[in-house]
């Protein structure tokens, strides 16, 4: 019998659960993660199974959550810190960038923490419940950043992040939580390697390099373009943002010669800029058109649906941009 379909959120939950079962040094800390089971119910039932000592409800103190995780990690623990919404990670920015990220390089300290939390828009969350904070941390050597888009990778990456010897920022898009469903094999250890992109769709005319929720919007666009324009669009899901999988990006560029980078984060200083530069450095001669970006507009994310829809990249934008680039 085929295993049941599970949601992105359930896959993440399973991954956390399995790691808690596997390794006693793994523990969770965050706001409302215990009895309540987390604002999005990612840790539902964990306190009951593993006890409140390993599923710690904390005060509203992100700097303390991350800092305490770091200290515990130095001592051999494997803490998983939850930000109730990733928007609040800014409160721990100092701790993450100054302390956690530099600890190994500066002082030879092992800090294998995972900081995870719901990110992203398309949910009418307004300016403080919709953010994509990757760019701020992407610029911080010493942190790793993963950003799954499938249920399998939600599970595979949380497990790999917990086992990784370095601090990992695990970004989970709340728009995917219950929208994405997948059958995961029962009894199989799902581990997604950190640093490897995933070819979400093969194509030959144009590559879309993306991650997070826009993977799905890009796939939708690719289907449409195939149907209406007979265009064969490749979609590369980065999965890990730091370190970037340069090889996978270049492979795709060398194959299709045209690249559209799509991300939900705002344009200026976003990851697309860095990816563009790397393609330019490593595969310039394979380009048959300019590297183009489809991103959010450079404004804080507004609340009204009409405004949010305008600001964020939509499937239709990807279709139009890809079409333009294909005709270049």
């Amino acid at each position: 019998m085929a295993p049941p379909e599970i949601t992105f959120l359930e896959a993440l939950r399973q991954g956390l659960w399995e790691e808690m079962e596997r390794d006693e040094s793994v523990f969770i800390l965050g706001e409302d993660v215990g009895l309540y089971g987390g604002a999005f119910k990612v840790t539902d039932g964990f306190a009951k199974r593993f006890g409140e000592a390993r599923v710690i409800d904390t005060p509203i103190s992100e700097a303390a959550i991350v800092g305490a995780a770091a200290g515990a990690a130095h001592m051999g623990m494997r803490p998983v810190a939850e930000m109730q919404f990733i928007d609040f990670i800014s409160c721990a920015y100092d701790m993450l960038t100054n302390y956690v990220a530099t600890a190994r390089y500066r002082a030879g300290l092992s800090t294998p923490i995972v900081v995870r939390g719901p990110c992203g828009g398309y949910v009418r969350g307004g300016p403080f419940h919709s953010q994509n904070p990757e760019a701020a941390f992407f610029h911080t050597p010493g942190l790793k950043i993963v950003y799954p888009s499938t249920a399998r990778d939600a599970k595979g990456l949380i497990k790999s992040s917990i086992r990784d010897p370095d601090p990992v920022l695990y970004l989970e898009h709340k728009w995917l939580y219950r929208r994405i469903k997948e059958q995961l094999p029962e009894g199989e250890e799902v581990l997604t390697p950190i640093g490897e992109a995933r070819l979400a769709r093969e194509g030959k005319d144009l590559s879309i390099v993306t991650y997070g929720a826009t993977v799905w919007k890009s796939l939708e666009a690719a289907q449409l373009l195939e149907k209406e324009d007979q265009l064969s669009v490749e979609v590369l899901d980065l999965r890990t943002l730091l370190p970037l999988d340069d090889a996978a990006i270049m492979r795709s560029v060398q194959k299709t010669n045209k690249v559209l980078i799509v991300h939900e984060d705002t344009r200026t200083g976003g990851l697309a800029g860095e990816i563009t530069a790397r393609i330019n450095e490593q595969a310039f001669e394979f380009l048959d058109g300019p590297i183009m970006r489809v991103t959010a507009h450079d404004v804080p994310l507004p609340y009204a649906p009409t405004l949010e829809d305008f600001v964020l990249p939509q499937t239709e934008d990807i279709v139009k941009a890809a079409r333009w680039l294909a005709n270049y």
Binding site: R124, P127, P300, P302, Y303, A304, P305, T306, L307
Partner: peptide, 13 residues
């Protein structure tokens, strides 16, 4: 209701 006429013109809630 995030109306256009709201004090923040729909930007904030």
């Amino acid at each position: 209701m995030a109306k256009a006429n709201s004090p923040t013109r729909g930007r904030e809630q």
